[in-house]
Nucleic acid binder design. Sequence first.
DNA 1: TCCATATGATAGTATTACTATTGTTAATTG
DNA 2: CAATTAACAATAGTAATACTATCATATGGA
Lengths: 224, 224
Amino acid sequence: MEFQVSFHLNEKVFLKDPESSELGKQLIKSAIDLIYELGFEHFTFKKLATEVSTTEATIYRYFENKHRLLLYILNWYWSYMEFLVMFRLQNVADPQVKLQIIIELLTQELPESSGTMDYNKRYLNQIIISESSKVYLVKEVKEINKSEVFKAYKDLCAKIAEVVSEYNPDYLYPRSLSSTLIEMSHFQQFFSNYLPKLTDVGGLGHKDFTARFLTDLLFKAIGK
Amino acid sequence: MEFQVSFHLNEKVFLKDPESSELGKQLIKSAIDLIYELGFEHFTFKKLATEVSTTEATIYRYFENKHRLLLYILNWYWSYMEFLVMFRLQNVADPQVKLQIIIELLTQELPESSGTMDYNKRYLNQIIISESSKVYLVKEVKEINKSEVFKAYKDLCAKIAEVVSEYNPDYLYPRSLSSTLIEMSHFQQFFSNYLPKLTDVGGLGHKDFTARFLTDLLFKAIGK
DNA sequence: TCCATATGATAGTATTACTATTGTTAATTG
DNA sequence: CAATTAACAATAGTAATACTATCATATGGA
């Protein structure tokens, strides 16, 4: 069976919906490749334009600047992740199992292609790990936040927090714990890869290690 | 009693030690002001040069680029924090009390001026919170790490991990827990300030909230 | 056929992130 | 005291970045 999921991403992230045209879709696809390859700092619209054989001017018709493009990609990821959580928790009654599934989703690679969106999931994953903080750790965060472009992140966080509270209604910090899980699912992977002394990764793969660490942390925090 | 602390920061961070001249010291001081004010992305050597009435060329004799300057500031912070931890743990026997002191240090503002280094501590604090991830979340992290410029961070992390292990020798993830504490002491403050829905800050101040959340998390993780 | 919309082509600007050269001054040393 | 060096100022210049603007062309409905 073929099916496809799509989310309507906050329209304030883009000027013109990249989903609305072939070029737009190609833009996102290539952007993911390029950001992965160069890192966000070295990624420019000029390079992206060359990659998809168009001009800077055209890209500026889709996105105000490269920060917005990254925000678009992250919005897509957050929405997709929330969908995956919802999807994978179907018919699971036990909140403990639910939480285990959530940690698995946060630490393992994204499942391949659900429909037309055939972004390179390995690259996307790396971008989430290495670049996601950069969309909010900016001076303009207050301004940007007003346009609700972080809603998808907050929703994901809220969804996880809900399950935390289901597991233990008395736990005082469900949302902070959720954002900690999300952030640390990235950071611990990044650290165990590049700065392993900041972790206890040892001989394990960094995804497995991160999953174990977070599972331990989570269930101890909310009580087993 | 007057005293002053100084650390010898890794020499690979700078080209010419800013501690070695008046201009150099002024550079760091003004850099902290400017990065705070503009955010790291909008901070440039040109602006810094104007601020201290010198030229870009001169600044380039001290630092290879602005990333290195930020790294210098963070090295200073990490070293200072490690010193503070060591200092404040003197004659404290109980590892539980030690950990409480550590969380306090991580979440409260830096104590004012220990000697000549009269950087603006409030600004410095904000920089740590908002900009610190940017020094390692870069494509070049592997290369940069080879010059050991993250040693101060790793040392701080190791020192905290040591106390964690002292408290509970059986805990499996002392270093990951420590890096989680450090990172989350910044992120939860940032979130509770700008994206409060990602937290459970409620009516509390964001420093106090972060301290409470981390205390709860830490002691539950390692067992009370 | 007309009209809107999307894109291409081209140009241009201010700023950024550097590098290079030369000159001045002040401190160090022989 | 002269000579040298180091530190910095002054100036210039370059390639890349982050945009903005204008106009032409193609395409696909109404």
